[in-house]
Every structure is written in C-alpha cells, then in structure tokens.
Design a protein around this nucleic acid. Structure first.
Lengths: 331, 331
DNA sequence: CTGTTAGCGCTTTCAC
DNA sequence: GTGAAAGCGCTAACAG
C-alpha cells in the first residue's frame, strides 16, 4: 500500500517541472528526451492522475448520469448496453441510478446527478410531469428522456402508437373479429395508453365491425397468468398482450387449460423478447430494438452536449415478427 | 444558464466566511442565526456544492466501480439490483463498466476504475488470472470478485459445485440411468467446470452405475436448440442443462420433435429464471438468488472499505425448484 | 462559534 | 520547449 503519487512526484523523479509532466500527459509540446524520461518514470511507478483534481480544473466530468426504473428487465439491459457502446466510445462513463418505478425517486435521482456535476443525463422515465420541467430548467446540463414522451422535453422513444397500429393491422388482416387486448395501467402512457390506442386504430381501420375487449393486468408473468379466466370469458379468437412477458404468462395458462395456440386462439405480444422465439408455440411479436434505441439516445445526448440542435423523435425501428402463435381466424 | 455558484458566493451573499458555509454544509457548529441566513441563501440560489472539489479535498469518492461482463442478462440485472440496494443506502454510487465477456477488457476496466479514484470495486468476473492479482496488488483499494473464485482474491460467489451436486442427487433419486449434461466451455470455471463437476459427484454418489454424457454448447438459446440432435443421440432419459436458457432452447427442440417432457425425457436447468415457471412444461431448476448475492457482495465490499476482516465465501443460498419437467425414470 | 489561511492535485497562462 | 506561479472549489486546522 504505497502512498498515491502525484504529478509533482513524477516531475521530481524525472527531473522536470510538473507542468512539463502535465503537458506530456495532455499532448502538449515536450521534447523527445524529456518525454522519454517522463514516460519511463510513469511506467515504472504506475502513476495515475487524480481524477477529481483533473475534473475540478477542467470543469468536465466526462460522466453521464443515467436514471433507470429498474435494471432487471430485458429492455433495461438492452438499453444500457446501447448507451454504454456510445458513451465509452466517446470517453464518457455512466453513473447509473435506479428510480424503482417511482416518479419521485426519479426526480431525486435527477437532482442528485445534477449536483454531482455530470455532463448530461439520460432518463428512462416512468412519467414526465411538471416537476421534471422545473428541474430541467434549473439544470445547466442537457437531459434527454426515453421511455416516455412530453412536448416540453427532449426525448427519443419507441413509437408505441405505431407499434400498436402495425399489430392492429396484422390482427385485422387475419380476420379476427373478437379480440382481447391484455394491457397495463394507463399510468404508463407509453405501454398502457399508446400501444392500446395504436392497436385500436390499426385494427378498427381495417375491420370496423371487430370487437376489442380490454383487460388490465401488470407486467408480471404471474398476473398475466391470473388474467386468463377473464380473458377467455370474452371468447376471443385472438389475444394481443402489451408485452411479450404478459403473452408468455397467458400462454402458460392456455397450455394448462388445453386451449391450443394458435388453433383455438391466436396470441401476440410486444417487445421481441428472445424467449418468444423458443416458447411453444413461438410467439408472434412486434419487436423493438432497444439496444439500437439506447445507441441513438446516447448519441443524441452527446449532440446536445456539443450544443448541436436536436429534436425529439419517435423511433420507428421496429418490426413484426410473425411466428407460430397467430393464424387466420376460422370462418 | 447562470454561472454556477461557489461556496464563496454563498458566503458573500449571506455575509459570512466561506468556512462557515462549509461548516453549515458539513454539520459543524454554526449559530442558529447564521445557519438560517445561509440556509435562506442556499435555497434561493439553488446552490449545489462542487462534487469534484469536495472529492479532491476529502479523498473519498463515494463511488464504487462495478465491472460486469454484460448488462442484458437475467443474472446481471438481479446482481446489479442487489448491489444498488446496499450502495445507495450507504451513500455510494455505482460506476458501471462492461467487459463484454472479454478478460482483457475486464482488466482494462478495473485499471480505469482505479485510476478514476473509486473507493472500491466489484468485479463480476469471467476468469481470474495472474494479471488480476498484479492489478489488485498495486491498487490501494478493496476489490471483490463474484462470478468466479480464486484463492488469492476476495470473492463471494454462488457455490456452483454444491448446486451441481444437489441437482445430481435429485436426478439420481429419480432413477435416471442415462443422462446428458448439456454444459458450456470449461473456460468458464464456475458454470463450465464446477456445475458439471458437482453434478457428477452428486449423481454418481447415489447412482454409481449411471452414465453421464457431456455435450457442450454455449449460453444462447439458439445453440442449445441446435444441440438437440446430439443430445438425443445419446438416448438419455434425462437432460440437465448448465443454465435455464439452455434448457429452454432444448425444450423448444423437444417440442418440435414431439419428444414429450417429462414423459419421454426429463429436463432441468440451473438459474431459476422466471420464464422457467411459465414454460410448458414448467422447468425444474436449481435456482440462485442473484439479487441476494448482489446485496451480500456489496456489503462485503463495504466491510472491506472499513478495514474489517473479510473472508471469501461460497454462497449457499440456492434451492431446487421441482416443477413439471422432471419425473421418475421409467423402469 | 467564526474568519483566516493553507493546501488537495491538476491545468494553464505567462515569461524566459 | 520549459518552469514558475496562479488558481479550480472545497475542507480543515488554527487562532481568535
């Protein structure tokens, strides 16, 4: 446990001034001989410059704050992976805080990050409200949102309405008349409201007489499974679930009740989770590319950091993966 | 965009010395009147102390570095969730770097974190080698490993041998004679070697005549699915997979080949992934509590930070979840 | 209790 | 090219 070396120590050891060492470290002009001297000393001592002193002086933290609702979900993992690709490539590091799906905690996290002096913040939000706007205004750093949208903030998110629409059109094309949409609480505007809204639009535009019954559940496998009785009570020929997780939970219920998918009921979800490809039957899903979204989000934040003008956007990178769980309605 | 205020500005505004403001901020003795004055100014200005200046002075970063092989996996999400619970509770923040399952990158990440001046590091390692030891020795901060073990480092990890053993005993108790262990590369000591080793022990101890055939795959659903032909060529009455993901991939293969689980073949995995509970049939699995492990890991690091003596340990928090995919072998 | 003072380790003028 | 010197914003003695 040796005492940590400072730039002064290196300067002494190399017989130069510390400013020379600093220059060497920051690509300034240093003569070849001194450079070699310094290089040698640094290598021998394993000297590492003090992060905080450097940041204090340069006024750049090279730290990006990230607020996530949770870490243990498919989309969170992919999103973070995407963020990380860009951030580390550009020499930034991620400081990750968890909001635990709690809006107040999300705000607290943002505050804390601002205080810490991060250069910018990415928020995978649950819900954007007036408190967010206030906070953003008094912050002097760029903040970008994803997960939810709001016309007064910078955001980039999946186009849930469009996703719903594509799914609606597909289900309508299969001639289903009686369908159940197994969705989540409208508190989650993106998943709860938009996906459902888009689905109605897409479906009804192509099948005006079709009937859509809405059943509410949450994002857990268990609740989806438990919603089975209610779902079948509507005698649907197709069930569309707001997430693949929900669809998988319901699929399990169908298996147990010997309801055959897709012979008896067609089933589809949103998300494009990998397990959908190996479930039996495999699951038709409107897949999002969260990693790609993460990359774009980080890129946008970095643009903001360079004062480039950015506009909020809905990402259309999504595609319908048709698998075994859906088929034409029986006539 | 107002210029960021310093402690001196606050002091001027409140008509006191900056050290008084500092004391106020750090719970030092300040008279009631001055305290109120300062409080008022701080509130009005929204002053936030400079993170880096403070860290430079106090020599504590309150930052914990975390190196993960990847972020988009079930165990990673749970582990991080666990870390986070403890860290944020103790006023620490996580700086997360990704090694991308690459040992050299893992080392680079550790170096980088040391340089940044984090107070401690948690490494979810792929493989601990001599370079790690060198790095640890020249670092002046505590580093704890998980994921892999090594007798020269501090670690806490799942007891994979024991997990394998429990599974082996269970499969033996079901009277299976011909079993396939669908595992991964021995490069991953924990999952590739220990789980298999434990399984052999547990199984053969209770069924000395039993036959175990080893088939190698990787952790992906696809590869597991592709291993199907090889697996069935051994005509096993039970297949044990090194992870639930692998088991699920294989299950899909069985469905397609109309091989019934568990009637024709029993199937089990390791991990306790939630999808195992809703697959059809539901999957018997040796479940680990990764979140709990994350909590214990963070706690241990924090103990090290306070110079408390710690010992490496294998976590025994695991349990066999018996579901529908396994049953007694036919006689 | 409070103000003054001296740095933490680094970058960056500014002369030489 | 290089060194001396002046801080970045903060905390922590130290007198008073």
């Amino acid at each position: 446990m040796t005492q940590k070396l400072t730039i002064q120590d290196i300067a002494n050891l190399a017989g130069v001034a510390k400013s020379t060492v600093s220059r060497y470290l920051n690509n300034g002009y240093v003569s070849k001989e001194k450079a070699m001297l310094i290089d040698k000393v640094i290598r021998e001592t394993g000297y590492k410059s003090n992060f905080f002193a450097k940041r204090l002086k340069t006024k750049q933290s090279k730290l990006i704050g990230i607020v996530m609702p949770r870490l243990d979900s498919f989309s969170a993992g992919k999103l973070l992976t995407g963020f990380n690709i860009i951030l580390q490539q550009m020499g930034y590091q991620a400081l990750i805080l968890i909001s635990e799906l709690n809006s107040q905690k999300e705000l607290d996290n943002i505050s804390q990050l601002i205080q810490q002096g991060v250069d910018g913040i990415i928020v995978d939000s649950i819900n954007i409200n007036d408190n967010h706007l206030k906070l953003i205004n008094q912050a002097n750093i760029p903040i970008i949102f994803t997960g939810q949208s709001h016309d007064k903030v910078n955001f980039i998110k999946v186009d849930d309405i469009n996703a719903g629409k594509l799914m609606g059109e597909y289900i309508a094309s299969l001639n289903h008349q009686q369908v159940v949409f197994l969705g989540v609480s409208p508190q989650d505007n993106a998943v709860g409201v938009d996906r459902y809204k888009g689905f109605r639009q897409g479906f009804l535009a192509n099948n005006p007489q079709g009937k859509i019954s809405f059943v509410q559940t949450d994002c857990s496998l268990e609740q989806a499974y438990n919603s089975g009785d209610t779902v079948v009570s509507f005698e649907p020929s197709a069930v569309v679930c707001a997430t693949d997780n929900i669809a998988l939970g319901l699929l399990r219920y169908f298996h147990e009740k010997k309801i055959h998918v897709p012979q008896d009921i067609s089933l589809a979800g949103f998300g494009g989770y990998p397990v959908g490809s190996i479930s039996y039957p495999s699951l038709t899903s409107l897949a999002f590319d969260y990693k790609h979204l993460g990359i774009k989000t980080a890129e946008k934040l970095l643009s903001m950091l360079q004062n480039q003008p950015v506009t909020s956007e809905y990402d259309h990178n999504m595609n319908l993966i048709i698998r075994e769980s859906t088929r034409l309605a029986k006539i």
